[in-house]
């Protein structure tokens, strides 16, 4: 797969292309070339470790939406068996930006729902770049309620720049659709496990993100507004996105420190896009444990704990 590289990944790209050129050469000098390739690979790995070990929040924000980053449907076959997609909101349309269905996870029947961005131009358009319309959220809710009726855990995968800001979305009640999901998820009587696998873009992400567990992969973000959007409003210029990213503290590590998530799921060296299988294995490990734990929790305890968790969100001073 031809890879895309972000600005700060350039040095890695240069080495990678050198390695590729050399590997393509054969002939008499084969032995020497093999040595050189091994040396360059080692150098590349050190470089990856160094660059990825020292990313600022703006760079992490860009990684969360890296064009090569695995999407929900890339993980589905690696994490689940017997996935059957279930389409449509039964009222208006089937939103390609949210995909859902039934599947098997560690032998348990589950409902899975995730945002889906597109890989090529055609799919991007079909999926509306992963930005859902109200019918997407209503489809998700329909599937959540299906899960509730048949006592199946729900697993959601968050990866969106945000809900679609369009005339059509407003006409069909974007706000109402998101609000409804937040409310119903808060009391859905089955385990709900949410994982951010890319961009956690504001209300559009949260609408499938309220549950008993919230995890974030290592190089993902979750924020009230995109760095560019924040910069446009507070700095009056989108080019201050890097400063906005610093101020918003949107990274997985930031949310862990704020006590808002249950864990950061590590990614393979160089990020999930460098090794999709490796990333899926790590997801599987954390989510597998979470499912077993929650399935063993009595329903009343599960719901009480979720309410308590939601009730406690926020940081403020009480001057009584």
């Amino acid at each position: 797969m031809p890879r895309s590289y972000l600005e700060f990944e350039r040095p890695i790209a240069e080495l990678a292309s050198k390695i590729e050129d050399l590997s393509g050469m054969g002939g008499d000098a084969g032995v020497n070339i093999a040595e050189e390739v091994a040396r360059l690979r080692e150098k590349r790995d050190r470089l990856i470790k160094q660059i990825y070990g020292d990313l600022n929040r703006w760079q992490r924000s860009q990684l969360a939406r890296h064009p090569d980053r695995p999407y929900f449907l890339d993980y589905v076959p690696l994490l689940f068996d017997d996935f059957q997609e279930l389409h449509g909101d039964r009222a208006f349309a089937d939103d390609g930006a949210i995909v859902g269905g039934v599947a098997r996870f560690h032998e348990h029947a589950v409902v899975v729902v995730g945002h889906q961005k597109g890989r090529d131009t055609k799919e991007k358009i079909r999926r509306n770049f992963g930005m859902p319309r109200p019918e997407g959220y209503r489809k998700a809710l329909r599937l959540f309620q299906l899960a509730e009726r048949f006592d199946m855990p729900v697993m959601t995968f968050i990866d969106t720049a945000g809900a679609w800001p369009g005339v059509d979305a407003e006409e069909r009640g974007q706000s109402e659709a998101i609000a409804r999901n937040l409310m119903e998820l808060s009391a859905l009587a089955v385990p709900v496990i949410c994982t951010v696998i890319g961009e956690g873009g504001s209300g559009g992400a949260l609408a499938i993100g309220v549950g008993d567990r919230l995890y974030m992969q290592e190089f993902t973000t979750y924020s009230v507004i995109s760095p560019e959007g924040c910069a446009a409003i507070l700095w009056h210029d989108r080019k201050y996105a890097d400063q906005a990213a610093e101020a918003l503290k949107p990274t997985a590590q930031d949310l862990l420190e704020l006590g808002l998530i249950d864990g950061v799921i590590p990614e393979p060296m160089g990020g999930a896009h460098a090794d999709v299988e490796g990333a899926a294995e790590r997801l599987d490990e954390t989510l597998g444990k979470a499912v077993e734990e929650l399935l063993a929790t009595p329903r009343d305890d599960l719901l009480a704990a979720r309410q308590k968790r939601l009730r406690g969100l926020g940081v403020f001073a009480d001057e009584r």
Binding site: A247, L248, D254, L258
Partner: peptide, 8 residues
């Protein structure tokens, strides 16, 4: 930041 989002 995200704390505001969580108020929703």
């Amino acid at each position: 930041g995200v704390l505001s989002l969580m108020q929703m």
